[in-house]
């Protein structure tokens, strides 16, 4: 049964690849750019599969399947909708069990209003505009299959609220974001942190020589359980830098969190990662990442090193392999993935 299901997934992948413009007959469609029906409707989506092997995990999964629709109603109003099934199909090869989770959740749903290049407003469920990794959260757009802990545990990935953003009037190429959430998430099924309020700001500056730098600061509140008796407040300060040229990319992000709970003390955590990519041939690259994560509630800080290889026959199709070395060697693991944006 498991084999049959994976054949179905494989057939779907093959169908997607057959839509590459070199192969496909329909010249209107180009893989990675979606199908544009008209100005107010473009359809697209993505999927990723992942294989993970460690001392206690041997697992194959169809971890993300998503569809997107977006468009422009005018030159000032636009929208985006993304529905996603997370862990759509998981095969535990060690225990010989399978599970599936196809009902989709709302990953993003928002409307944009552009007043000018200096003032735009996004309302709805959106990706929190913090850092680089958080804003390219899907496998196919990343250089590695895995995410740094930085991106998973420190800041809510999503914001259900309002983001006012644009080019700062006083600085060319300086982009600002001021964001606010004052409710629960629109769909809490697959989010990393479930805040009931969240606000902050972010700045990003781009230089002509391939460098970008930025930073953000904010605060969010979580409520544990059904009553509001257990609340935690977390403040964060984040900084990032990036360099890109035709052959190399270098990304670094760091964050400090300070968390306080009613009736409890203050705890802090910090995380940083540095990742380099070397595109040694067209379509082939080597990636290395080092991570550091320390939570004051945990005595031993975690250090992770990753070495990976990425092959992209075309940019929106990605095949990746990586090996992770953890400070606690039992966590060492091999991860590979295949992902497509269509």
């Amino acid at each position: 049964m498991k084999l049959v299901e994976f054949r179905v997934v494989g057939a779907c992948m093959a169908l997607c690849l057959l839509h590459h413009p070199v192969i496909a007959q329909d010249s209107d469609y180009e893989i990675g750019l979606g199908k544009s029906v008209n100005d107010w409707l473009t359809l697209g989506g993505y999927f990723s599969t992942e294989y993970e092997k460690s001392s206690d995990v041997d697992q194959l999964q169809l971890d993300d399947v998503a569809v997107m629709a977006y468009g422009e109603f005018s030159n000032r109003f636009s929208y985006l909708l993304e529905l996603e099934s997370v862990n759509a199909y998981v095969a535990n090869l060690e225990r010989d069990t399978t599970s599936s989770n196809f009902p989709p959740t709302i990953e993003r749903l928002y409307i944009d209003y552009k007043r000018s290049d200096h003032l735009s407003v996004r309302v709805g469920k959106q990706i929190t505009p913090v850092g680089y990794w958080n804003q390219q959260p899907i496998n196919v757009l990343r250089e590695t299959s895995s995410n740094p802990r930085f991106s998973k545990e420190m800041v809510p990935k999503f914001l259900t609220g309002i983001d006012v953003h644009g080019f700062a009037p006083l600085g060319e190429d300086l982009i600002y974001h001021v964001y606010l959430q004052n409710s629960r998430d629109m769909d809490e099924a697959n989010i990393n942190i479930k805040p009931v309020s969240h606000y902050g700001f972010a700045l990003a500056k781009q230089y002509g020589n391939g460098w970008r730098i930025g930073g953000s600061a904010g605060q969010f509140k979580e409520v544990m359980g059904s009553t509001s008796s257990t609340r935690t407040f977390t403040r964060y300060w984040q900084a990032n830098g990036r360099f890109d040229n035709e052959r190399y990319s270098l990304i670094a992000e760091g964050i400090i969190n300070s968390e306080s709970a009613v009736g409890a003390g203050r705890e802090s955590s910090k995380a940083v990662y540095v990742q380099g990519e070397y595109r040694y041939r067209p379509r082939h690259s080597l990636i290395s990442r080092v991570e550091y994560f320390h939570d004051t509630g945990v005595t031993v800080p975690e250090r992770i090193g990753i070495l990976g290889y990425s092959f992209r026959p075309v940019f929106p199709v990605s095949l990746k392999f990586e090996y992770q070395w953890h400070q606690e060697s039992s966590y060492n693991r091999f991860v590979s993935s295949f992902s497509v944006l269509f």
Partner: peptide, 17 residues
């Protein structure tokens, strides 16, 4: 190649060429 990469990334953000 860089332009194609840029527009693929933009497609995820809901921006068309």
């Amino acid at each position: 190649g860089q332009i194609n990469q840029y527009w693929v990334t933009s497609h995820f953000q809901g921006i068309k060429p």
